[in-house]
Design a protein around this nucleic acid. Structure first.
Lengths: 141, 141
DNA sequence: TATTGTTATACTCTATAACTATA
DNA sequence: TATAGTTATAGAGTATAACAATA
């Protein structure tokens, strides 16, 4: 018998949060919020203002993070010729490498775990992932 | 056809993190790390040292958090008569109420989403939750 | 001596307010 | 006047080191 909807929801929510906490322990070489910025730039975000909005962070916070990323050679900032107030952000090669390494490191724990599952279990996890992504999409409209 | 194990793992990990981020936006009245402590006490954890270990936080950090929780009347600390170095932690009634309110608030978004799923989908999500919890347990041994 | 918990101190990430420079 | 971004400053939350009390 299937539990009540509210129980399923609670247990699922709790499990997702536990997984997140566990995966976060797989330390990357850079802080999590830096990593998030590199990922956003990789997805095509171009300006500091846009980044601050999408990450729900204040403009000064993002400004400081970007300065540190630039200092470490992971991001480059050039003045936008069309609007000289703006600065166009791009990932450097080192930034792209850091992003790839970080992704691999974050996935490592989960890959080991999923590998230990039976094919049937892997199928359940895969289908659940599709459903979760649909729920998240539905919500953002 | 089922994707590669590494793809399933990556997509699942990413989905869990997105769900966590979305659920966190359902603000509780107290900071997330306080909430986590109340939940641990409710599960039967009794001492500050044990809490610090389980939450992967330093002893002084936990000590400070507990002091603030005590100041706000959510937790009470009494000296353990059997080992006078220790202090036994218990949730007050107000703490228990805060915990219940917080849980309801955190679950709210997810309950709405799961309710929108078909019974078959709910079954997949439920089975996935069981698998995820087993993976987390396996790991902590 | 070892352990439980605290205080002292410093670092990181965050925010709001005030600023510079462009538009 | 409004906008993109920065600097100045302060407030959380965290950590390590040093300490007190008890075992």
């Amino acid at each position: 018998m299937l539990p009540a909807t509210s129980t399923i929801a609670h247990d699922l929510r709790a499990a997702c949060m536990r997984i997140t906490r566990r995966v976060r322990l797989q330390a990357t070489r850079i802080p999590p919020h830096w990593f998030t910025v590199l990922a956003a730039l990789d997805r095509g975000v171009k300006t500091a203002t846009e980044l601050a909005e999408r990450e729900h962070v204040s403009a000064p916070s993002m400004s400081r993070t970007l300065k540190e990323l630039e200092d470490r050679g992971l991001v480059s900032r050039t003045t936008d010729p069309d609007d000289r107030r703006s600065r166009i952000l791009t990932l450097t090669e080192a930034g792209l490498r850091e992003l790839h390494d970080g992704r691999r490191s974050r996935d490592h724990w989960m890959v080991e775990r999923v590998r230990s599952c039976t094919p049937q279990e892997q199928k359940v996890l895969y289908e659940a992932t599709l459903i979760l992504n649909r729920l998240l999409e539905d919500d953002s409209r």
